[in-house]
Design a protein around this nucleic acid. Structure first.
Length: 834
RNA sequence: GCGAGGGUGGCGGAAUUGGUAGACGCCCAGGACUUAAAAUCCUGUGAGGGAAACCUCGUGCGGGUUCGAUUCCCGCCCCUCGCACCA
C-alpha cells in the first residue's frame, strides 16, 4: 500500500489544474452563476495565515458551489499601489515597481501551492496602466457628475522630512521616520462628494440586512451618522451678523440660555474685536489649536471656554443670551456653533455649572418640578414642552415639527439633517499611486485630461527621495505638458489617488478584466454581479466597504451596473491567533504557511484551518491540531487503499443474512446522513468545522464497518461491495471542497473518468435517513433514567406504555403518582411523578 | 457611557426549533505491535462518590418561566470588538 504522499499528489494536481485551466469561466446566461470573492491582497511580501484562512474559506465554498453545478466566478488579483512599496524602495534602494512585482511573483507561487480554484486568466494588478487608467476614467466621470471638488484640508505635516504623512505614519504625534513633531497644515486637495450619497448609502443598508453581519451594518450606520434636527439663526445683538446653529432638539429652543462657537469659527474672532475679551479670545484660540485633537474631543476631557464679548437673541423668546467659545464645539460638525440648552443636554449642563451660566427647564419632567437648581444632571428624555409660550404641551416629534414650521415661516430656520460622514479626500502627495488626470493651465485653470489621452502613465524612471517626498513634483518630463485646451505650456497635477479607489471597483472589473473600452463590460457585469459572497477581514467593515458601495451606487446612476448593492452576502472572518495573541511579527508568533505546506501539504493546512473554528470566529493556531488534520488525511488514505481490494475482488457470499442486511442498511443510512449534514453545514450555516467533524465521524464508521466485515466469515456480498464503494465515493466527494488534492487523487485511482468537481455534489435521499430502530430517552422528572431502543414507527401510546413498564423506570416511579407523561416523537419521554 | 458579540472539560470547539450537555479533534494515561523508537491500532478521559451497577453535581453568578433551560425572561460580574463631547 503506497503511503499518503501529499508532496507528489499536490504538485501533480496543481500542475494539471493550471495546464487545463480547470477553473476558467465564461459568462453563460443559460447557467446559474455564483460570484465568490475574497478581498484581494496587498502584495506585501509573503502571504500570512490570515490570507490562507481567507482563501481557504472562499475556496471550500467555491468548490462546493462548482460541484453543485453553478457557474462559479472565483477571481484573484493584487491591490498593488500603496505606501509600503515606497518605504521598502527607500530602504532597499530599489524601485516600488520592482519590489511590488517581485512580491506578486512570490505570493502567486505561495497561493498556487494552496491549490485554490482561481480563474487566473482574470488576474488583476492595480498598478498596471491597463487597470489604473480606469481609476482616472472614474475620477473624470465622477467630476462630470459634480462629485469631485477641491478644498483645503488639514494634513499631517513633517517639517523635517518636508512631506505629508498618512495617519498611520504618525506615531504618538511624531513622524515615524525622523521622530520630529508632526504639525497640522492646511493643504489643497481633491475630494469625492460621498456625502451626496450619505442618505442612499444609509437607506440601502436595509437591503443588506440578513446578508451582512449586523455588526458591520451598525458600524456603517454609525459612520454615516445621520441625525435629524433643525438649523436656527440667532441674530447678534447690535449687529447684522447672525449665528447659524444645528440642533437635534428644536423643542428645547426656549431653554437656550447661551451659545457656543467653535474656536475656529470665523465669528469667534470677529465678534470679539473691539471688546474687553479680545486678548482673552486670541489666547484661547491659540491654546485650543495647540491642544491635541484627540484629547480635545475625548469624553470626560475638560470643557474649557471663554465669553466672546457679544450677545445673541433667542429667536423664539427674544431673550438676550451671551455668546461663548469652547474647546468641545467642533468646527467640522454641523455649523460649528451650538445653542446651549443646559437643562436638557449633558455637555451644556456641565459647562453651565462650571461657568455659572443660567439653566432653564423647558421640557416638563415626570415629577413636574421645574426648579433648575434641583437638577443633578441634564434631563435628556423627551417630554412635553413647558415655559415655551404657545408651544407648551406639545411633545416629541410633533413638538419638533411645530417649532420647525414656525421657524420656517419666520425664515429664521428650517428642519434639516446632518451627517457625521465627511467627504472623501482622495489626494495623496505620494508617488506610488494613480496620477490624478488633471492639468493646471494659467489661462484655462483646472483642465481634465481628455479621455483619449488616458492613461496618464505613472513614470517609472522616477527616483524616490530618502525622506518620502514624491519625486513627481520635481520630474520635469512628467509635469510639463501643453494645456489640452489652449496648448499653452501647463503643469500636471502631481498628487496621486488614494489606493482605496483601486479597491472600490476591482470586483466590477473581474467580470470582464480585459475590457479595453470601458472599466468593465456592461453585459458581463449584468451577468456576474452582484458578488454573491464576499469574504474578508472585519478591519474593512467601514472604509473599503463603504467606498465600494459608493462607487457601485454612482455606477448605477451612470447606468453601468444593474444591482443596487455590490455585495449580497458578506462574511467577516475571524483573526488567526497564537498563544492568545494576534499572529504578527510584533509578537514573534508568526507561522509561515510555506513551512506548514512543506511539512504536511496544503490539504492538511486547509483542513486544519477550516476545522479548528467556525469561519467568523477567531482561530487559535495549534501545531498539534495541524498534526491531527494530517493524521486524519492519512487515515482516509489508508481506508481508501485498504478497501480497494474489497471492490476489486469478485463478488461472493450472499446478502440474505439478516445481520448483514441490517449492517448494510445502517451503512446506507450513514452515507445519506453524512451527505445531509455536510451539505447543510456548508450551505445553510457556513460551518465548515462541523461539516468536517461529520466527515470524520463518517470515516470512523467506515473503518469500523470495514473491520467488522473483515472478521465476518463471509466474503462481502455484491450488494455490500457496491454500497461500500458508494460510501467511499461519497467520502471522496464530500471531502473534495476541503482537501481537493487528495480527493482528486483518490477519485482518479478509483478509475473515475472525470474530476470530483465535474462529478457533482452527492444528493441524499430522505427515505434513507431513517433507521429502523431508534433510541428514545426516558426521563423521570426531567432526569435521564433509561434509554430504549424502539421501532422507528412506534406509536405514542405504546411508547408511553413501554416507558412506564420499564423496570428501571419503575424503580423511580414506584410509590409515586404519575402526574403527566410528555412524549416528544422520536426523541424522548418525560414522566412527571410525585 | 452607548451598541454588538461572547463566557461550555486540561485545550480548540459541538449541541440547527426549549428535549440525552461535552459531537469531532487535540492533549494526557494505559495497552497492542516492535529488539527499540517512530508510525499505526485499541481502551479510557467533565468533577466527586462507588468494586461495580449506578448516583450526585455541572454550561460566568443570582433569580424566574417550564414537565424539561447552554438555549427564553429579569438582575449582576467578566472578556473582546466597534463608537464615543457629533450639538
Amino acid at each position: 500500500m503506497p503511503d499518503y504522499d501529499p508532496k507528489t499528489i499536490e504538485a501533480k494536481w496543481q500542475k494539471r489544474w493550471e495546464e487545463e485551466k480547470s477553473f476558467k469561466v465564461e459568462a453563460d446566461p443559460a447557467k446559474p452563476k455564483y460570484y465568490l470573492l475574497e478581498m484581494f491582497p496587498y502584495p506585501s511580501g509573503r502571504i500570512h495565515m490570515g490570507h490562507v484562512r481567507n482563501y481557504t474559506i472562499g475556496d471550500a465554498l467555491a468548490r462546493f458551489k462548482m460541484m453543485k453545478g453553478l457557474n462559479v466566478l472565483h477571481p484573484i488579483g493584487w491591490d498593488a499601489f500603496g505606501m509600503p512599496a515606497e518605504n521598502a524602495a527607500i530602504q532597499n534602494q530599489s524601485h516600488p515597481d520592482t519590489w511590488t512585482h517581485a512580491n506578486i511573483k512570490t505570493m502567486t507561487a505561495q497561493i498556487k501551492r494552496l491549490g485554490l480554484s482561481y480563474d487566473w486568466d482574470r488576474e488583476i494588478t492595480t498598478c498596471e496602466p491597463e487597470y489604473y487608467r480606469w481609476n482616472q476614467w472614474c475620477f473624470l466621470k465622477f467630476m462630470e457628475r459634480g462629485l469631485v471638488y477641491r478644498k483645503n484640508s488639514e494634513v499631517n505635516w513633517c517639517e523635517s522630512c518636508n512631506t505629508v504623512l498618512a495617519n498611520e505614519q504618525v506615531v504618538d504625534g511624531l513622524c515615524w521616520r525622523c521622530d520630529s513633531e508632526v504639525v497640522p497644515k492646511l493643504q489643497e486637495g481633491w475630494f469625492f462628494k460621498i456625502t451626496d450619497y450619505a442618505d442612499r448609502l444609509l437607506e440601502a443598508c436595509k437591503d443588506l440586512e440578513g446578508g451582512w453581519p449586523e455588526q458591520v451594518l451598525t458600524m456603517q450606520t454609525n459612520w454615516i451618522g445621520k441625525s435629524t434636527g433643525a438649523e436656527v439663526d440667532f441674530q447678534i445683538k447690535d449687529s447684522k451678523e447672525s449665528i447659524q446653529v444645528f440642533t437635534t432638539r428644536p423643542d428645547t429652543l426656549y431653554g437656550a440660555t447661551f451659545m457656543v462657537l467653535a474656536p475656529e469659527h470665523p465669528l469667534t474672532h470677529s465678534l470679539s474685536r473691539g471688546t474687553k475679551q479680545e486678548k482673552t479670545i486670541d489666547a484661547f484660540i491659540k491654546e485650543v489649536k495647540n491642544q491635541d485633537k484627540i484629547a480635545r474631543t475625548r469624553e470626560g476631557g475638560e470643557k474649557l471656554g471663554v465669553f466672546i464679548g457679544a450677545h445673541a437673541v433667542n429667536p423664539l423668546n427674544g431673550e438676550t443670551i451671551p455668546v461663548w467659545t469652547a474647546n468641545f464645539v467642533l468646527m467640522d460638525y454641523g455649523t460649528g456653533a451650538i445653542m446651549s440648552v443646559p437643562a436638557h443636554d449633558q455637555r451644556d449642563f456641565e459647562f453651565a455649572k462650571k461657568y455659572k451660566l443660567p439653566i432653564r427647564i423647558v421640557i416638563r419632567p415626570p415629577d413636574g418640578n421645574t426648579h433648575a437648581d434641583d437638577l443633578k444632571e441634564a434631563m435628556t428624555a423627551p417630554g412635553p414642552m413647558t415655559q415655551s409660550g404657545s408651544f407648551d404641551g406639545l411633545a416629541g416629534d410633533e413638538a419638533k415639527q411645530k417649532v420647525c414650521e414656525y421657524l420656517q415661516s419666520k425664515k429664521i430656520g428650517k428642519a434639516t439633517v446632518q451627517f457625521r460622514l465627511r467627504d472623501w479626500g482622495v489626494s495623496r502627495q505620494r508617488y506610488w499611486g494613480t496620477p490624478v488626470p488633471i492639468i493646471f493651465c494659467e489661462k484655462c485653470g483646472t483642465v481634465p485630461v481628455p479621455y483619449a489621452d488616458l492613461p496618464v502613465v505613472l513614470p517609472l524612471d522616477a527616483q524616490l527621495g530618502d525622506k518620502g517626498q514624491s519625486p513627481l513634483k520635481s520630474l520635469d518630463s512628467f509635469i510639463n505638458v501643453p494645456c489640452p485646451k489652449c496648448k499653452a505650456p501647463a503643469k500636471r497635477e502631481t498628487d496621486t489617488l488614494d489606493t482605496f479607489i483601486c479597491s472600490s471597483w476591482y470586483f466590477e472589473r473581474f467580470t470582464s478584466p480585459h475590457e479595453e473600452k470601458a472599466p468593465f463590460s456592461k453585459e458581463s457585469n449584468r451577468y456576474w454581479m452582484a458578488v454573491d459572497q464576499y469574504i474578508g477581514g472585519i478591519e474593512h467593515a467601514i472604509l473599503h466597504l463603504l467606498y465600494s458601495r459608493f462607487f457601485h451606487h454612482v455606477f448605477r446612476d451612470m447606468g453601468l451596473v444593474a444591482t443596487k448593492e455590490p455585495f449580497a452576502h458578506l462574511l467577516t472572518q475571524g483573526m488567526v491567533i497564537k498563544d492568545g495573541r494576534k499572529m504578527s511579527k510584533r509578537w514573534g508568533n508568526v507561522v509561515d504557511p510555506d513551512h506548514i505546506i512543506d511539512r504536511y501539504g496544503a490539504d492538511t493546512a486547509r483542513l486544519f484551518i477550516l476545522f479548528a473554528a467556525p469561519p467568523t470566529k477567531q482561530l487559535e493556531w495549534s501545531d498539534q491540531g495541524v498534526e491531527g488534520s494530517f493524521k486524519f488525511l492519512k487515515r482516509v488514505w489508508r481506508l481508501f487503499e485498504g478497501s480497494k481490494n474489497i471492490f476489486d475482488d469478485k463478488p461472493a457470499g450472499d446478502d440474505t443474512e439478516a445481520e448483514l442486511q441490517t449492517q448494510l442498511k445502517d451503512l446506507r443510512r450513514i452515507i445519506h446522513v453524512t451527505i445531509k449534514r455536510v451539505t447543510e453545514d456548508i450551505e445553510r450555516r457556513m460551518q465548515f468545522n462541523t461539516a468536517i467533524a461529520a466527515i470524520m465521524e463518517f470515516v470512523n464508521h467506515l473503518q469500523k464497518f470495514l473491520e467488522g466485515w473483515m472478521k465476518h466469515p463471509h466474503e462481502p456480498s455484491a450488494k455490500g461491495q457496491a454500497l461500500f464503494k458508494e460510501a467511499i465515493e461519497t467520502l471522496i466527494l464530500v471531502l473534495s471542497p476541503f482537501a481537493p488534492h487528495i480527493a482528486e487523487e483518490m477519485w482518479e485511482r478509483l478509475g473515475q473518468p472525470d474530476t470530483t468537481h465535474q462529478a457533482g455534489w452527492p444528493e441524499y435521499k430522505e427515505e434513507y435517513l431513517r433507521a429502523d430502530q431508534i433510541e428514545i430517552v426516558v426521563q423521570v422528572n426531567g432526569k435521564v433514567r433509561q434509554k430504549l431502543l424502539v421501532s422507528e414507527s412506534i406509536d405514542e401510546a405504546s411508547l408511553k406504555v413501554k416507558s412506564l413498564e420499564d423496570p428501571r423506570i419503575r424503580e423511580w416511579t414506584d410509590g409515586k403518582e404519575v402526574k403527566k407523561v410528555i412524549v416528544v416523537p422520536k426523541k424522548l419521554v418525560n414522566i412527571v411523578a410525585k
